[in-house]
Nucleic acid binder design. Structure first.
Lengths: 343, 343
DNA sequence: TTTAGCACTCTCAGGTCGAGAGTGCTAAAT
DNA sequence: ATTTAGCACTCTCGACCTGAGAGTGCTAAA
C-alpha cells in the first residue's frame, strides 16, 4: 500500500485530531482547523481513497471519518515521528527514581505510578525475572515449634520467603549451620546442580534441599515475576468507555493474573530488551481488548534478568508520546537493574 | 425511633427487594410478590411513615420507594439476622486456604480473591502489621561492590528487604559476622533498645545499625502493611454505575494508597479483632464513597499482629451475606496468623 | 384500623421533526 | 489531469410531544 505524501498528511491529521476530540472528523473541519491550502472537496476525495484502503472508516454514512485499527497500525508503523521525551519530563522522572528508597519493589511501584500518570492510562510492570534460577543464599529462621521461615535469595536479587514445617523442632543454631552449608556448597548452582549435592547433607538438610528444589522449579516455571498495576481508573474516564462495559472487560484482563501472564508472554516473546511492542485493538486475538491498545517494552539485562513494562489505554491514544514514555521508563529501569542487581 | 413490627417487616422487604432488582419498589408490587395479607393501601400508609422517618425515599413523586442510607443503617443495625455462612461455602473457603502454599503473601492474595468472588465486589486485605517493630533477625548479603542486600525479619514474620550502599566493599564473611552479631545482641529489642546497643558494634556495624533503625522507624510509622486488592471490576458491572463516573471515583480511592490508608486507619481505630465495621455511603466523610458501602473486619492477634480485611461494593449490597463472609475470612486469617506468625 | 376507589402525578418509551454536519457526484475551472 | 464549487442527499442528534403504566395520597366506607 503506497500512499502519496498528501494522503499521509491527511491520515496523520485525522488521527491527531481524533485522538484529541474522540469525534469523527469531517473534511471541512480538517481544512479549517489546519489551514490547509486545499478545498474540502479535494480532502474528501483523498479521504475516500483512504477509506477504500481500509485506513479510515465512517461510523455511518455522512458522518466524518475515524481511523480504523489498520489506520492506527499504519500510522504507528510508518508515519510516527519518534519524538524524544521533553528534557524536563525526563528529568522529573529520573529525579523521582533516584530519590526513592533503594529498593527494587519501590522502583517497580514507582515505574507503574509514573507511567500511569504520564500516559493517563493503566500501567503494568513486572518484576525482573531470570529464565534460569541460580541459587545464591539461603536463610532459615526458627519461628516456633516446627515452623521455620525460609528465605531464598537467587543470583540477581530475586527473593522468596516461605514458611516450612519440619518433621521436628530444630534449634536456631542448627538451622543457621545448615543454611550456611547451603550458601557455601550451592552458590551459583541451578536446581540440577543442587540436586547433585544431595549426598553432602544429612537427613534434615536433605529434607530442606527438596523443599528448596521445589521452590526453585516453581520460580523457573512462572513466566514472569510479581506484576504491579496502576492507573486503572484512568482508563475508565475515557469517553469511549462511558457507558459500555468494554472498559470492564479490558480491566478484567489486568486483574486476572493468568490472562495477563498470557498476554505478556505471547507479546514479549519476540521482543528484545530495548525493543517495543505495540498491540492495537487486540490484533484479532484478544477479544476483550478490541477497544484498547497495549504498548510494552522489555527492560533489564538480556542475559540474566528481564521484566516488562507497559501501558494499556484506549486505541485512541497519543502513540508517539506514550511510546517514548514507555521506552524511557524501560531504559531507566534497565539502568537501575544493571547497576544493582546484575549477576 | 421506634418501629412497629409491621414497619420493620416492610422496610426489610423493600431493602431485600431493592437489593435484588436495583429498582424502586411500589406498594402493589410488594404485596403481590410476598403474598402479604395486607392491602396495598395499608402498605402505602406505612411506607409514608417510613419516608417521614427518613428511612425510605422516593426518587420522584409517584415512583416506588428506595431505601435511604439511614434506612440501610437501621437495617444493618437492628434488623439484620446474622445468618451463618452455609457450611458448604465455609468448607470451600477453608479448603482453598489449607491447600495453598504456606506463605503469608499467598494467603492474603487468596483472601482478597475469595472475598471478591464471594461478594462480587471489590475486596481489600492488608498484611498483618505490628504496632511496635521488634527485631528478630538480620541478614546481609554481598551483591557486588559496595551494594549489599539487607534482609530484616521482625518478630511476627514481617520481612523487609533493601539494598544499601556501604562506604567501601566488604567481604561476605565479614557481613555474615556482623549480621550474626545483630541477631544475637538485638533479638526481641525495639528501635530504642537497639539504639542503646550502639557501642557494642564497630564502625561498620554502627553504620548498618543506623540504617536498620531508620528502617524500623519507617515500618512503625506506616499504619498498615502491604495492601492487596481484588475484584475491582466487579463493582463496575453494577447497574448503578453504568454511566456515571461514581464508580471511577470509588475505585480511585482503592488505587490511591494514601487515601486508602486514611480510610482504613480512621475506620479501624475503634474496631477490635473479631469486630466488624460497616461504613454506609461514606457516612458524610468520604465524598467519593457516597454510592458505596465498605465492610471491614480486623484479624490477627490483638496484642501483636493485626491486619484488616474487607470489601467495597455498592450501597445496595446483600449485607447479611457479605458481613458473614468478611467475618469468616477474617477468622480464617486470624487462625492462620496465630498458628504460624505469633510472637 | 383497614381497605376500596379514584383522581392525580410523574417517568419512560416511542414517534415526529427540523437543524446541522458531512458526504458523493457532476460539471466547470485551472 | 487535477482541483474545486455547487448541490442533492443521508444520517444523527436533540427537542418536543404523547400515551401507557406505575405509583401515590386522600377520602369515605367497611
Amino acid at each position: 500500500m503506497r500512499l502519496t505524501d498528501r494522503q499521509k498528511l491527511i491520515l496523520t491529521l485525522i488521527i491527531h485530531e481524533h485522538i484529541q476530540t474522540a469525534q469523527p472528523i469531517g473534511s471541512k473541519t480538517l481544512v479549517q482547523k489546519y489551514n490547509l491550502t486545499l478545498s474540502s472537496a479535494t480532502v474528501r476525495n483523498e479521504m475516500s481513497v483512504l477509506t477504500d484502503y481500509n485506513l479510515l472508516r465512517q461510523p455511518h454514512t455522512s458522518a466524518g471519518r475515524v481511523p480504523t485499527e489498520e489506520g492506527y497500525r499504519f500510522f504507528v508503523g510508518n508515519l510516527i515521528h519518534k519524538s524524544a521525551l521533553p528534557t524536563t519530563t525526563r528529568r522529573t522522572i529520573t529525579h523521582q527514581f533516584y530519590q526513592s528508597r533503594q529498593d527494587v519493589e519501590q522502583w517497580l511501584k514507582l515505574a507503574a505510578s509514573v507511567l500511569a500518570n504520564q500516559s493517563q492510562a493503566a500501567s503494568l510492570v513486572t518484576a525482573p525475572h531470570a529464565e534460569k534460577a541460580i541459587f545464591k543464599h539461603l536463610e532459615l529462621i526458627a519461628t516456633r515449634g516446627r515452623q521455620v521461615l525460609m528465605v531464598l535469595v537467587l543470583m540477581g536479587g530475586e527473593i522468596r520467603q516461605q514458611f516450612i514445617t519440619l518433621p521436628e523442632p530444630v534449634a536456631q543454631e542448627r538451622l543457621s549451620e545448615i543454611a550456611a552449608q547451603f550458601s557455601n556448597l550451592c552458590v551459583r548452582r541451578d536446581a540440577d546442580g543442587i540436586a547433585r549435592m544431595r549426598q553432602h547433607f544429612d537427613a534434615l538438610g536433605q529434607d530442606i534441599l527438596e523443599i528448596l528444589l521445589a521452590e526453585m522449579t516453581l520460580i523457573e516455571e512462572s513466566a514472569t515475576g510479581e506484576i504491579y498495576l496502576d492507573g486503572m481508573t484512568n482508563v475508565l474516564s475515557e469517553p469511549e468507555f462511558a457507558e459500555s462495559d468494554e472498559a470492564r472487560q479490558a480491566l478484567h484482563i489486568l486483574e486476572e493474573r493468568s490472562l495477563l501472564e498470557n498476554l505478556l508472554a505471547s507479546t514479549m516473546v519476540n521482543t528484545d530488551v530495548g525493543g517495543i511492542q505495540v498491540l492495537i485493538g487486540g490484533e484479532g486475538t484478544w477479544e476483550e481488548l478490541r477497544q484498547c491498545s497495549v504498548i510494552l517494552a522489555r527492560y533489564g539485562d538480556p542475559k540474566s534478568l528481564t521484566g516488562s513494562v507497559g501501558v494499556l489505554g484506549p486505541i485512541r491514544m497519543p502513540y508517539d508520546r506514550t511510546i517514548s514514555t514507555v521506552q524511557f521508563v524501560a531504559n531507566v529501569l534497565s539502568d537501575l537493574v544493571s547497576e544493582t542487581l546484575a549477576v
